[in-house]
Each structure stands twice: as structure tokens, then as C-alpha cells.
Design a binder for these strands. Sequence first.
DNA 1: TATCCGGGTTACCTTTTGGTGACCTTCTTG
DNA 2: CAAGAAGGTCACCAAAAGGTAACCCGGATA
Lengths: 122, 122
Amino acid sequence: MTQTQFRYCGLNVALKTLTGKWKPMILFHLFRTEEIRFNELWRIIPKVSKKVLLQQLGQMEEDGLLIREERKGFPPEVYYRISEKGRALGSVLAQLEAWANTYAPQQVQQVFDSEKHVPSFD
Amino acid sequence: MTQTQFRYCGLNVALKTLTGKWKPMILFHLFRTEEIRFNELWRIIPKVSKKVLLQQLGQMEEDGLLIREERKGFPPEVYYRISEKGRALGSVLAQLEAWANTYAPQQVQQVFDSEKHVPSFD
DNA sequence: TATCCGGGTTACCTTTTGGTGACCTTCTTG
DNA sequence: CAAGAAGGTCACCAAAAGGTAACCCGGATA
């Protein structure tokens, strides 16, 4: 019986799917754009290598967090969008965000600052 | 203005403090025991090396998730317990756990099974 | 035909993370 | 005095994660 507590097995699984240097940022963009093309994402995310971005998107697809759609065409167009399973994480991610802002504001600020030199999304 | 959405900076920070092979398990035990001694934890957690356990506890202390108390005495006694900041994560962790159980039950089961050969906590 | 563009792979290297075993320290007990 | 706890460090190694640059494919266009 799992009272109000958690067990660590699911937590382990959940964290494994969220762990990866660029995944929070990818999720952020998926949550705000409905669908996004690979190169678009690549331009928007500052300094990822193509390989690693591809690789993290690949893992997230495997884990079912996002859906990859390849529309056949002239130049290839590949769209990524959040899945149901991914969207279900929304409120939890927002709470993690809130937690960090409350209990570790200076570190959050540091992350923010360290990305200031970047082509600023509007 | 951050609508119902999250930004990724805090999320990044939060995930960084939670990432580590044994941290979910450590948190699990901290949440259920009020306080726990190092060797006790070491015996209970199956196959961590002393060094790595120490190291993850160290990071968690730095990050303020737990409190390390060294009671002077005959054989040294070091107690670890969850902090306020750590406890504030409780409900979020439970939600992550629930998410995994709902959307990835088979993987959760795998993690569970892979730890079955272990001296079973009662 | 030569080139470009979007998406993707590969070979290779560096950094980070986790693991092993030996060793230290202080006090206690046989 | 020898040996044993508890908590911890150190040198060393292995695996995983991330990064760089070059290259591939197919269609479009100069």
C-alpha cells in the first residue's frame, strides 16, 4: 500500500525519460508550439550539435513523449509534436519549475544568465 | 508572464538535483524513515558502492535536499534526513511516480523485477 | 551539370558518471 | 596489543553522455 508516499521504481523510470542535457528545453518548445520542424528547433536551441539533438528527440520518441511525423515532400519535412503521454507531464513539469524558482532562485537565475548571449526568442 | 506553462530554466535546475543513479532510491528512504544512518542506508540499498553513495548524498546535501548530522560519539554516527526543501518535492515526486505507473507500467515493472533478487525490505 | 537544402548517419574524441579495492582515523573491545 | 566498527578518502578503471566534422540521400533549382 502506497499511502501518500511514492515508490522509487516509477520515479526512476520518469526521471530516466526526462534526463538529457537538452530535453527540458525541447519539452519547453514542444509545449508552446503545437508542432515544430527539425531545423527550426535546431536553430532555436542555441548550441546543440545536430547529432545530439537528433539523439535526444529519438529517445523522447522511443519513450513516447513526442510524435515524429515525416511528411513526404520536396525537401523532407519532419515535424515533432508533444504526445498525450508527454502532455500529461505538463503540470508536473510546471511544479518542478515552481519548486526550483522557490527554493533555488539563484541557480535558476544562473542558468538563465548563462543563456543570455543567445539569439533571444521573442 | 508564464501562463500555465513552464520555462525550462527552473526545470533544468530541478532535474539536475534529481539526476543520479541512486537518488530516487535515497529520496524514497529519506521520505519513509525520518532519519537514517549511513551504514544502514548502505546495507539497505542493494549494490551501490560506498563511494558513490557518499557522493550522491554529498550532492544532495549541497543541493539542500537533505541534512547531514554528525553526532559525536564512540563509533561515529552520521544521520541523514530530508530537509524542508526536499520535503517540498514530495507531491511532485509522487506525481512523477503516478505518471510512470500510468503511462509506462511495463517499464516500471521491469525496474521492479530487476531488483527482486535483493534482500527485500520488510 | 553543379549546388543547395532538409534530415540523418558515422567515426572519432572529451567529459561525466559510476564502480572497485585499498587505506585512514578514532574509539572500543577481546 | 590486535582487531573491529563507522564514516570517509584516494588512485585507478569502465561505461555513458555529449561534442565536432565529414559525409550520404533525394529532389529542386541555378
